Simulated assay, not measured.
Amino acid sequence: MPKNKGKGGKNNRRGKKEDGENKRELIFKEDGQEYAQVVKMLGNGRLEAKCLDGESRLAQIRGQMRKKVWIVVGDIILLSLRDFQDDRADVIHKYTADEARNLKTYGELKDFTLVENAEAGSEEEEEGIEFEEADIDDICELYSCSEYTFEC
């Protein structure tokens, strides 16, 4: 049996430490790029995103991000726009919730609603069925048939 030579666990390999060592520099958009929010996950590395310019685009997650960066509905992402297809784009960066708040304070995400994943589920109202109260007389009339012997 080989001896364990490293500090174990997949969290160590992925570099997920809580010490603050994982802080990264905030990336701003450049020419040919746009901020967007994920509207719908379509599968196979594709998603539908609502861009800051008001357009809805079909976006492809680039290969370097697949299976390493998990993107869910409501995330703020940076898209690289295509010159030859206006309705399609490529996802090049995903912002964390803290980075998205920082972008909003810097004024980069003006007129853009940030929907947090936890808040999105709590805002939905459950629609139920409302029942009216029935009188006991109505129930007695219902079961007054000769087939049933029901006494009120």
Rank of each mutant, 00 (worst) to 15 (best):
A134R: 09
V91S: 04
F150L: 15
L52Y: 03
G54A: 08
G45L: 04
A120N: 13
D138L: 02
G74Y: 07
R82V: 00
K5N: 10
A134G: 02
I136Y: 12
K29Q: 08
Q33G: 04
L78H: 03
I129W: 00
D87I: 02
T105I: 13
L142A: 12
E130A: 05
A97I: 09
E125P: 10
G74N: 15
Q33D: 04
K7Y: 03
I136V: 15
C152L: 14
L114G: 01
K94L: 07
V72Q: 09
E127F: 14
K104Y: 14
A59K: 08
N44C: 00
E18Y: 12
E48D: 06
R82D: 03
E132N: 09
G6F: 12
V73K: 15
R57Y: 13
V72I: 07
E125M: 12
V39R: 08
C152N: 12
T149M: 14
Y148T: 06
D98V: 12
D135G: 06
N102S: 12
Y95S: 04
L42V: 01
I27H: 05
K17F: 10
D87G: 01
D75R: 04
G15R: 03
V91L: 03
L114T: 00
N11K: 02
D137F: 08
G63A: 06
R46V: 09
E132D: 12
E133V: 01
G43L: 00
A134W: 05
I76L: 13
E130R: 05
R14L: 13
K29S: 10
I61V: 12
E127V: 15
K104A: 10
A120D: 13
W70Q: 11
Y35C: 02
Y95Q: 03
Y148W: 07
G8W: 05
W70A: 11
F112M: 11
K29C: 06
M41L: 10
L42N: 02
E30C: 10
L109K: 04
K29V: 07
E141P: 01
E124A: 09
E48H: 08
